[in-house]
């Protein structure tokens, strides 16, 4: 992957999060504290501002740099959670991304540990885990299939009862709303996969 490619991927993900910030906030207002969109926009604006410098780094270092920015800038629980995802990816991934499935599995594990959570609690893990499983299964056309897996997984959080995070305070009233973290995860995966397809790097 060239720095130009990496730059396009970073910008694609950051732009998708920034463009959907209001939607994330609305989802969070329904079952949380309403700050997810604002927090994620602040984090990814910082990531986007540094995208050119980040893209010059080897892939593991670039991912760690993004993770550090999210940790420092996002605030809210999503900062350490997404920060940990990128930091852990950077720690494990090979410079040529050849071990992406294993690295993503390790990163999802790290997010579970950071959030003291597991899939089924109506969180971002309910998207990350099925995406990780699909990635581990492998097969053709992953960049086309993973966004579908992620979107379906985010939809599947709607009927779930939240048992972790601020939404868990609502108990039964958390049912019937999509989890904002699940939505932001699906957004990031979809924008990354679309950019990979456009670059023909799938």
């Amino acid at each position: 992957m060239t720095p130009e490619h990496l730059h396009k991927l970073i910008v694609a993900v950051a732009d998708a999060v920034i463009a959907h910030a209001d939607e994330l906030t609305e989802l969070d207002q329904a079952i949380g504290d309403g700050d997810h969109g604002v927090n994620m926009r602040r984090g990814f604006e910082a990531v986007r501002a540094d995208a050119a410098a980040t893209a010059e780094k080897p892939l593991p270092d670039a991912l760690k740099a993004i993770g550090t920015q999210l940790v420092m800038k996002v605030g809210g629980a999503s900062g350490p959670l997404y920060g940990t995802l990128f930091l852990a990816l950077g720690k494990t991934i090979a410079p040529d991304a050849s071990n992406i499935a294993a690295a993503f599995a390790a990163a999802v594990q790290a997010v579970e540990a950071r959030g003291k959570s597991h899939p089924g609690q109506k969180t971002l893990l309910d998207v990350l885990a099925p995406v990780q499983a699909a990635l581990a299964d492998g097969g053709p056309h992953l960049p086309a299939r993973l966004p579908i897996v992620a979107a379906a997984a985010a939809d599947a959080t709607v009927p779930m009862l939240a048992t972790r995070g601020r939404a868990s305070f609502l108990g039964e009233r958390s049912i019937g709303h999509m989890d904002p973290g699940a939505r932001s995860s699906a957004l990031m995966i979809a924008s990354l996969c679309r950019a990979l397809e456009e670059l023909d790097l799938g």
Partner: peptide, 12 residues
């Protein structure tokens, strides 16, 4: 407070 000065918390 969060890094933007709103309600929230900030690692730094």
């Amino acid at each position: 407070g969060d890094p933007g000065g709103g309600l929230g918390t900030s690692v730094p």
